[in-house]
């Protein structure tokens, strides 16, 4: 199970990194989202993989490690905020520079398309 979990994290990371290295903003945003999934999974597993456990006091199940869960929970929300910020930034870049290249230099779209 651990090997499977680690493999999945690795695959997500690899896919995220590959997209992050692309030259257009949208794939980069998608890549960052993938990467944040990978990071969250990675951090989450730091407490070990607990099946049929709980983080509720006084229940009949054994405890799972609550600390990574708390950290990851805020990380998910912050991750969303950052994704949103980056994607809006990408839109703004396109609006101002007329290109969605990450380097903001190649204007390969006819200018009249823009309003």
């Amino acid at each position: 199970m651990e090997a499977l979990y680690a493999t999945v994290t690795g695959v997500l990371t690899a896919c995220g990194i590959y997209l992050t290295l692309r030259g257009r903003t949208f794939p980069v945003v998608v890549g960052l989202t993938l990467l944040s999934y990978a990071v969250n999974l990675f951090l989450f597993s730091m407490g070990g993989l607990a099946s049929k456990s709980t983080t509720i006091v006084d229940s009949s199940f054994p405890y799972a490690d609550p600390l990574p869960q708390a950290l990851v929970l805020t990380a998910i929300v912050i991750g969303f905020a950052m994704t949103a910020f980056v994607v809006i930034l990408a839109m703004r870049t396109r609006g101002d520079l007329g290109s969605d290249s990450v380097d903001g230099q190649r204007t390969d779209e006819p200018r009249e398309e823009r309003k």
């Binding site: 680690a6 994290t9 990371t13 690899a14 896919c15 730091m46 070990g48």
Partner: peptide, 21 residues
């Protein structure tokens, strides 16, 4: 990029496996 991404994924997976075991 594929090489770098693959290496990265491999390293992360190994790290993850090493920690959770």
């Amino acid at each position: 990029d594929l090489l770098l991404a693959g290496t990265f994924g491999g390293v992360i997976a190994s790290l993850n496996y090493a920690v959770i075991t």
